[in-house]
Design a protein around this nucleic acid. Structure first.
Length: 824
RNA sequence: GCGGACGUAGCCGAAUUUGGUAUAGGCGCCAGACUUAGGAUCUGGUGUGCGAAAGCACAUGUGGGUUCGAGUCCCACCGUCCGCACCA
């Protein structure tokens, strides 16, 4: 198919000069400062935000979908009477610019700035309006100064700390990663298998907020359930008990274990330590077990998490030669190490109850350990370990109790004995934020031999990112090679000291950018509280579901900390969240690396920004992935074409006349459309909103093209309503038409149309008459018809009479005014 | 393995409120009009089967069920997608 031929006469609006008219209105909106807003307004505020993008330079059709949604919403809410904040900025630190620098030698700053210029042009070309006075770019010193300032507040509160720990290391990107950035043992960015390394790293103490981050999810009822579920699972709260057990052969040594099933304690037949558990060495040193155990531990440490999980059916482990005493019955139980127990969760040691836990069952079977059931399985149970609820058996004083009762009783018993207690565990770990890479925000800490880690004083911020000769990371940050950066004096004692050379995870930058938008040019603080309190929380946040955990969890954490420190009133940043679907082509997400991008350039020339926007809205349900179809823009372009010709007198005929039935009908159609489009936009059903407008324009066109033509006065009444409905979707053409039909105000500032409910509710409707559930006739009835009247009308229908053939119906179900079902 | 969502014309999809006219809208396709021409525009058609037509029957992944009535609710199965996956 030949798609992009220059158009000839007629088609695509000879009188509509796409390039000139779109440029004209983009200039007008800018000149009118359409999206520039302040904090003083008698209108209610609406903070409309899209997740700020990494400035990649080239936008494709997949990106445009999201930008279209945001701009549609800004324009719609403005017409609905809100003071709309629609800012834009750049998540401009990060690896692509740095990797490009390694390849080409171009400074990441230059690379990034040039791409920002490009992206702004492309957003303008789409017709999007933003308050550019509030633009932020996290790589610029006037932004990261405040990222550093906030880091220091976290540090002073004990919420930022450095510790030596086994951490995730991506060998490809040469940097550590947060747990959230490791997906199935692979680097979230590049897919390399992540390995564990022991390194000293900076963490944010997000675990202090685990309970609140979990609890407050309940308030976020305008978030997708699946995102809330993912966060709940990630935080991973569990309730249980922690207790300690004496090691029989080593007086004075005891092992702490955490369990969610203390009710099964009588079924415990062995104890397992994680390979990395600190007691492993103590328990085996100088024994015959020392050497094989050390070999096992060494082997496990070399294996990546992926491989460790890959063999999870086999429960590899070794006996340590020592025993523990079961505190509930004094039983002697062997102590093992095994790689299925993780050091990072709970106490790194477990009580193993093979009767009630499948992993323990597998291990016990492989190592010939006793299995005792302590919960009665149902009679038809044919599995191995039974993990369900049931009556306690073989459990002394717990016998006969159900799971919940037994749990409560045994925990009370532990607490009375002083050997254990009720505890809560979270799966969430602290957020590892340091990165051994160049293109990020420097950590504002100075290490002094006598004073330790000292924060850089506020008046010395920002700690500027120095220029470097070599961007290539080699196990440590490229900053470490810059002596003039590293060597400094201690802000506390004035002695010689060295700077931190790691930079921050770019998710730190994006954890507060939405607050900076509220007061982006503030030079004395990250943002003023009054401004933040005026705009926050964000009324609508739009972004990809891939951030369900990462960004959205971190940003919630930051907001809570800043709330606690008195910087902002809200505790949750995003009141409503919308996660849009992707654009798919050739079976894959549209992306540069997949080589399946559709560039909008040719479409801009051929069809214009409005047709592209409209197709992005029409392509399918906003939440779902949608398959790109080259012909789709053709369809929305034809629709716009009709709208244009209608407004320019190039379609049908309009006559002066008294109002006819057809005229009245068209008014109703338009009012119904106003209602439908309004409700659809409110529920993000953009595809059906566009469909409704198409239907309406089809009706309008047939009316104007009918032999009687259209009524000029009626047209003058309803056509502008159509333009208003279309204004947020196809702003350029509608603005031009609005001006041409004689308005001097800018359409974007005109109030949204209202529908007349009396015109929407129809006086008579089609009543469906069924016989035995099958449609047999349709009759026109008044809306308010009674059950009896509807029944009578249905039975009076000649078609029904014919089917009944004189017989009496057995039953008649009347649900007027929709349906009457005659049962014979 | 566990949990969740979904499955509707040739394709993308609609059916919001409470179970009540299934297939709106678009793409594509077929025929016609205008035309030197059509890939513009306009008109008509377009689930399947039978029928000249009116109409009838059958169609929402498959098989059951509830109901006067099921795309919608319930059960089982098949398929697609997503999340979680040694978290004690």
């Amino acid at each position: 198919m030949v798609l992009f031929q220059p158009h000839r006469d007629g088609r695509n609006m000879a009188s509509y000069d796409i390039a000139a008219i779109e440029a004209k209105w983009q200039d007008r909106w800018e000149a009118a400062a359409l999206a520039r807003v302040g904090e003083e307004s008698d209108r209610p505020k609406f903070y409309n935000l899209q997740m700020y993008p990494y400035p990649s330079g080239e936008l494709h059709m997949g990106h445009l979908r999201n930008y279209t949604y945001t701009d549609l919403l800004s324009r719609y809410k403005t017409m609905r009477g809100y003071n709309v904040l629609a800012p834009m900025g750049w998540d401009s630190f990060g690896l692509p610019a740095e990797n490009a620098a390694i390849k080409t030698g171009i400074h990441p700053r230059d690379f990034t700035e040039s791409r920002i210029v490009k992206m702004k042009e492309q957003l303008r070309r789409l017709g999007n309006v933003y308050d550019w006075d509030r633009e932020v770019a996290c790589h610029r010193p006037d932004y990261y100064r405040w990222t550093q300032w906030l880091f220091i507040r976290f540090f002073n509160e004990g919420l930022a700390y450095k510790k030596d720990a086994p951490v995730n290391w991506c060998p490809q990107d040469q940097t550590v990663l947060a747990n959230e950035q490791v997906i199935n043992g692979e680097c979230e960015r590049c897919g390399s298998v992540v390995i564990k390394r022991n390194l000293s790293q900076w963490f944010f103490k997000i675990t202090d907020y685990a309970q609140r981050l979990l609890d407050d999810l309940d308030m976020l009822d305008a978030w997708p359930d699946r995102v809330r579920t993912m966060q709940r699972n990630w935080i991973g709260r569990s309730e249980g008990a922690q207790f300690s057990m004496a090691v029989t052969e080593r007086p004075g040594i005891s092992i702490d274990v955490y369990t969610t099933r203390p009710d099964t304690s009588f079924g415990m037949t062995f104890v397992v330590l994680a390979p990395e558990h600190p007691l492993v060495t103590d328990l085996t040193v100088g024994t015959e077990y020392e050497e094989p155990v050390a070999a096992f531990v060494a082997q496990v440490s070399k294996v990546s998490e992926v491989d460790r999980l890959a063999g999870s059916e086999d429960k590899r482990g070794l006996f340590l030669g020592v025993h523990a005493t079961n505190p509930v019955n004094g039983a002697q139980m062997p102590i093992y190490i095994a790689d299925y127990v993780l050091m990072g969760y709970g106490t790194g040691a477990i009580m193993a109850v093979p009767g009630q836990d499948q992993r323990d069952w597998d291990f016990a079977t492989e190592h010939g350990i006793d299995i005792i059931r302590t919960v009665e399985p149902p009679p038809d149970f044919d599995g191995e370990a039974y993990t369900g609820d049931g009556v306690a058996i073989n459990s002394d004083f717990l016998n006969g109790l159900d799971m919940a009762e037994a749990k409560a009783k045994i925990i009370d018993w532990f607490e009375e004995q002083g050997t254990g207690e009720r505890t809560v565990q979270f799966r969430l770990r602290d957020w590892l934020i340091s990165r051994q890479r160049y293109w990020g925000c420097p950590i504002p800490i100075v290490n002094c031999a006598s004073c330790g880690a000292v924060p850089v004083p506020d008046d010395q911020l920002p700690v500027l990112l120095p220029d470097v000769d070599n961007y290539k990371p080699e196990g440590k940050s490229p900053l470490a090679a810059v002596d003039s950066f590293v060597n400094t004096t201690c802000p506390s004692c004035g002695g010689p000291a060295t700077r931190e050379t790691d930079t921050m995870d770019t998710f730190v930058d994006s954890s507060w950018y939405f607050l900076r938008y509220t007061d982006a040019r503030n030079e004395t603080e990250p943002f003023g509280r009054a401004n933040a309190d005026y705009w926050m929380a964000i009324d609508q946040y739009i972004g990809g579901v891939e951030h369900a955990i990462l960004h959205l969890l971190y940003a919630r954490f930051f907001t809570k900390v800043l709330h606690d420190l008195g910087h902002v009133s809200v505790e949750e940043p995003f009141s409503a969240l919308f996660t849009q679907g992707m654009i798919v082509k050739d079976g894959a997400k549209m992306s540069k690396s997949k080589g399946n991008v559709v560039s909008p350039d040719r479409y801009y020339e051929r069809y214009g920004a409005d047709a592209i926007r409209l197709y992005e809205l029409f392509i399918g349900p906003a939440t779902d992935d949608a398959i790109w179809n080259d012909n789709g823009v053709e369809g929305t372009s034809r629709f716009l074409d009709r709208i244009w010709r209608m407004g320019t007198g190039d379609l049908g005929t309009l006559v002066e006349r008294d109002v006819t039935a057809a005229d009245n009908e068209i008014v109703k159609v338009v009012h119904r459309t106003v209602k439908k489009v309004t409700k659809d936009i409110d529920r993000f059903a953009f595809n059906t909103a566009v469909a409704a407008l198409m239907e309406c324009s089809n009706a309008l066109a047939s009316w104007m093209r009918s032999d009687d033509g259209g009524n000029r006065a009626v047209f003058a009444d309803v056509y502008p309503m159509m333009l208003k409905l279309l204004a947020p979707m196809a702003p350029h053409m509608t603005h031009e038409l609005w001006e041409r039909i004689g308005h001097s105000t800018i359409l974007a500032t005109v109030p949204w149309p209202e529908w007349d409910e009396a015109l929407v509710t129809v006086a008579s409707v089609t009543l469906v008459v069924q016989v035995n559930g099958k449609v047999r006739d349709r009759i026109e009835v008044p809306v308010g018809i009674s059950d009896d009247d509807a029944t009578e009308a249905a039975l009076a229908s000649p078609k029904i009479q014919a089917i009944l053939a004189g017989a009496e119906p057995r039953r008649v179900i009347a649900r007027p005014p929709k349906i009457v079902n005659v049962v014979i």
